[in-house]
Design a protein around this nucleic acid. Sequence first.
DNA 1: ACTAAAGCCTGGCTGC
DNA 2: TGCAGCCAGGCTTTAG
Length: 277
Amino acid sequence: MPELPEVELVVRNLRVHLAGKQFLRSKLIRSALAPNNTPRQFASGLRHAEVEEVWRRGKHILISFRNGRTLVVHLRMTGEFLFIPDNEALPAHTHALFELSDKRVLAFTDQRHFGYMELVHTAELLRLRALAELAPEPFSPEFSREYFREVIRGSRQPIKLLLLDQRKVLGLGNIYASEALFRAGINPKTPAGRLSRERAERLRQTAVEVLRSAIESNAGYNSDPEDISGSYTEGLAQDAALVYGREGSPCFTCESLIKRIVQGSRSTFYCPTCQRR
DNA sequence: ACTAAAGCCTGGCTGC
DNA sequence: TGCAGCCAGGCTTTAG
């Protein structure tokens, strides 16, 4: 159930394990995982493909091969990569398998079937709608004060929902959106366009900082090099949360009780005192 | 053009 | 112990 920091960690781990390797044989077990590929295309397009680069755009994982293809992966809620130890049975909900040139077998599992893969020609990558419409990377200069001001200008959308829109702000999910608003002292229901310049800029900086510090703490936490998913399955993000999941508990700053509300059918957690407006 | 709600799935937890 | 109902960190599609 990864947000950008957890995806970044997965990308770093995959990079270590896949650098210079070939995908000898690949198998799409559950074809709905990659609805725009036939299982045959999927297997033939990856056959003996040598990994060139493992990278990321927003929460999408991109594995580019020297044969001119790129495997686009979105973990959504429960997607996960893991290595299958020799002679062990496949884990439940294994939807794709990749046999590597070092003889190890990489599996993609996904309990809730929300995950997504697509094998595309690398040249066509940026034409994919899912990638083309994404906001600038949060750590890039393009995610600037001016950009953010323009994005919220005139919007009556509650700021929490705007933060979750990957076309406007990239990388936050439901947890880090609540966390960023708490740290910036902004009420999640405030219409985005009503934020002053100063408060908007504070929120933009806070959002970037929340993502950055999550990457740093996650990276330090992942002690097992064989564990590709690292900490996100262990709920590290939640453990470090100041408001997320803390309904009814005292605010760490002012001891008011944290509230839970529903916005866009998702839970939002906030402190009614620290985030008055 | 915006905004809200439903939908995709399985499984864990809570309360009766 | 069994079962119904609720909840879940993402995103797309449909309806209004």
